[in-house]
């Protein structure tokens, strides 16, 4: 499954979860929605860890004001498409994996096609209207959605497992307004790293996930809290797409 170079490259991880575990990562395809602050951290760590296929999508070009946090893109990349810049950086980090970078705006119309062949959705968006599209797609395809969001020193993360946990809409029924949010790169580092750790555990099938738990990070006081999330029976997204009865079955198992 792994060639000699891969065995060497991933040797410190193989100490953690064995060649079998590494082979599971190699087989996994991750869809990363956004190549901004969170998308940078998520894609860099997923590429380095050896997720076999990464598809990263962003419609923007690199701006100078992105560089404080979007570590995928460097000063020379200003003006280039984020997708192309992301592809160069990720392939430079790990040529053993397959990187697809698409210059697209995620929509209800194209999400199915964008997700084809991917079994993990990494939320690196900057708005809830697109997050709700990712949530519905995760429910429809029954694949996990690893949610993360940041603002300034603060961040949040939770893991949505369709058929098992509250969905993103259960936890956040209504979107906060779109604003030009303040952003610190290291906050993206904290939250994006949590999302990748969740995806690694999910693929390997061990550890405790952020299931029905919303983790809240406050960098200003350096504290982490969590609040419980609960499925909303009658939720407009997961009730419609999976059905309340299926959740009851899951819970009584």
């Amino acid at each position: 499954m792994l060639n000699d170079l891969e065995k060497k490259r991933y040797s410190r991880q193989i100490r953690l979860f064995g060649e079998d575990g590494q082979a599971k990562l190699k087989k996994a395809g991750a869809f990363i929605a956004g190549a901004g602050g969170l998308g940078s951290v998520i894609s860099i760590y997923m590429a380095a860890a050896g997720f076999g296929k990464i598809r990263i999508v962003d419609c923007d070009s690199v701006e100078l004001s992105n560089l404080n946090r979007q570590v995928l893109h460097w000063s020379d990349d200003v003006g280039r498409s984020k997708a192309r810049s992301a592809k160069d950086t990720l392939e430079g980090i790990n040529p053993e994996i397959e990187v697809e970078a698409l210059e697209e705006t995620i929509s209800k119309e194209n999400i199915d096609q964008l997700l084809s062949g991917c079994s993990l959705i990494m939320d690196a968006m900057d708005n809830f209207s697109t997050r709700y599209i990712l949530n519905k797609a995760a429910l429809q395809k029954k694949i996990p959605l690893f949610h993360g969001a940041i603002c300034g020193y603060q961040g949040q993360a939770t893991t949505v497992i369709p058929g098992k946990t509250a969905c993103l809409r259960c936890t956040f029924p209504r979107a906060p307004p779109v604003t030009t949010f303040p952003a610190l790169g290291s906050t993206c580092g904290v939250i994006g790293s949590i999302q990748v750790t969740e995806a690694v555990k999910y693929v390997l099938g061990f550890g405790g996930l952020l299931e029905n738990r919303l983790m809240l990070w406050d960098g200003l006081s350096c504290s982490m809290d969590e609040v419980a999330c609960m499925r909303n029976p009658g939720c407009q997204d997961c009730s419609a797409l999976i059905g309340d009865a299926n959740y009851k079955q899951e819970m009584s198992k």
């Binding site: 956004g34 901004g36 602050g37 969170l38 998308g39 939320d123 690196a124 968006m125 900057d126 708005n127 809830f128 993360g148 969001a149 940041i150 603002c151 603060q154 961040g155 949040q156 956040f172 979107a175 906060p176 779109v178 604003t179 949010f181 952003a183 993206c188 809240l216 609040v227």
Partner: peptide, 10 residues
């Protein structure tokens, strides 16, 4: 009672 605003940035 817990009260919080969601954050939305990325």
């Amino acid at each position: 009672i817990a009260i919080l605003p969601p954050v939305a940035g990325g």
